[in-house]
Design a protein around this nucleic acid. Sequence first.
DNA 1: GCGCTTAAGTAAAAGGATTTATCCATGGCC
DNA 2: GGCCATGGATAAATCCTTTTACTTAAGCGC
Lengths: 340, 340
Amino acid sequence: MARTTIKDIARECGVSLSTVSLVLNNNPRISPSTREKVLQAVDRHQYQPNAFARSLASRSSHVLSVVVPDLNHVFADTYFGEIVSGIYDRASELGYKVLLDVANQRFVSTGEYLNILKSKRVDAALFIGSSVHDTYLHQVEEEKLPMVLVNHYLPGRKMSYIAADYAATARVAAEHLLGLGHRCIGYLSGTNTYTALDLREHFISACTSNGLRAEDVPWADGWFTEQGGYEAAHWLLDRHPKMTALMGGNDKMAIGAMRCLKERKLRVPEDISVVGVDDAPAAAFTNPGLTTVRHDLFLIGSMAVDSALALFKGEAQLIEKTLPIQLVVRESTGPAAARG
Amino acid sequence: MARTTIKDIARECGVSLSTVSLVLNNNPRISPSTREKVLQAVDRHQYQPNAFARSLASRSSHVLSVVVPDLNHVFADTYFGEIVSGIYDRASELGYKVLLDVANQRFVSTGEYLNILKSKRVDAALFIGSSVHDTYLHQVEEEKLPMVLVNHYLPGRKMSYIAADYAATARVAAEHLLGLGHRCIGYLSGTNTYTALDLREHFISACTSNGLRAEDVPWADGWFTEQGGYEAAHWLLDRHPKMTALMGGNDKMAIGAMRCLKERKLRVPEDISVVGVDDAPAAAFTNPGLTTVRHDLFLIGSMAVDSALALFKGEAQLIEKTLPIQLVVRESTGPAAARG
DNA sequence: GCGCTTAAGTAAAAGGATTTATCCATGGCC
DNA sequence: GGCCATGGATAAATCCTTTTACTTAAGCGC
């Protein structure tokens, strides 16, 4: 038994294919009575237009690709999860479907990241969490393909992006700590994204331009994970015992740092203050609650969808958006104590 | 500039459309020399066949839908993340793409769960974590659509599924605790899936058929979360102070229970033993390490892909698979102590 | 009653592949 | 030399919609 097609509906209603198609696409040119007749037949047959024939003819798939990095447990990560939620929500609001892609070795080397667009399989692609190593993205700069970087960017490249204001993040965090009297602040830096490098640079210069010397803002590199923050914190504390505050590149690192402090019997915030970035759900549940700079990842995801579609429709050529951030003061920061 | 099509390649090589198509599909009927010639042209033009034309003609989209429940932070959950990883890995191995769907109100009420299949947008659909409330799935029982339930099932329904052996899980956990001398065991039950109900039932009957009375295996309902386990544990401990062991419906509940025990100054495992289910990554990092029953969620995900495709290709009508489980003994269980 | 606008439909041309049945040389065999 | 099997390639049908340009009929003002 062959599937019901638009032809069957047309025949049954005694109208042309075009009429059925127009009805299905809510074209006002069809009279209410005809419309009604067609819709009833559609209902009777439980007819669903073939998505491919549709995409083929209309030149739009109504599908978006979201590309996540090839990390362990990337599908169980609050950072990516929040962005993906924002993307999914907005996309389905607009009648779009979301296709999953992982930027693994194969994805890059086979040029899959181009193929999904060239084969018209998706209307646009959203790249979450690409790193400084993802030079393959450079190649598409000139092709004007509808792709956008989500909460990340490539400095000096003409690639669309939507990202939180990392410069402001650094400034706000630095000012908060400086305002509490801290004069030696350790920085736990993520390492492989431009936003991470940016954040570190801006944080350090915010401190130094407020009177601290460079050596008063020591930093250490690590992965953007609890473990990374834990290790980096140990490393810094071994070398700079008089630090009174630690700033993490994201909440996970800050949380890892708190575990390190606990082991070292340092009290937060009495002995040492801790600040994170993102305001992940976990930040509210640490003990003490983590002071952090809130990034609205859900919003970033949903705006990325709008931007990607604008590019796809040719309504824009290049979109570069920076979103406001917000300091969230909880209990992990307090006045600087004398240490050493 | 129009996109390059198969026609352009054919013209340039002086061969027919069919020839190009056959080359692209690795059909052995084409001579090596022609094949080479075509492939070079393809390469020169960076030609990518239009995915829709392809799907339309070949009647296969090479896309799978994975349907996750509409839970908070479902995209940042280790349980779902692990299954999705398994699905994604196996799917891309087979040249399949993965489409994301969330079983929210709209997805159900608009019949979207049927439309994705009827519109041929996807070859098959995988449902993760559907609950007892998802009665909409009953409707498709007879339609023989290529869909499979992942680590879940609908008792008495003819719907394909792949799931861990929950009966064995219950038995193994019960025997482990009974073997350690426990004679009053609390059970923290998830509430809204058939596997959860199954697990509880089997656990209780494993205990009673080994000499415990029903009142020695008290249980409480809760969400499948840390908070759910935490609350259920408090509830049980208030009422059954002589329990020497707690069994959680999954690792999260067990971990929540451990937080509760800590608050109550009960030592694990000296005062009370705790067992979980799943062997989530976190289980190895609790303190003490959590004894649990390992479910290979990654494997379940990847097998679900194979099953779904078998259904799609008509190689099978109904697939019902139960996967072996494994007890992982860590530090959270020990000999029963006298309490009460 | 005439020309013109508008509303309601329709015919037919894309859209870009896959696939089946068919065709045409060859080469081998007797 | 004639016949047949076979390997290599092709023509044409098919997949199912969208969309543009065109047709027809009705309605309107004068």
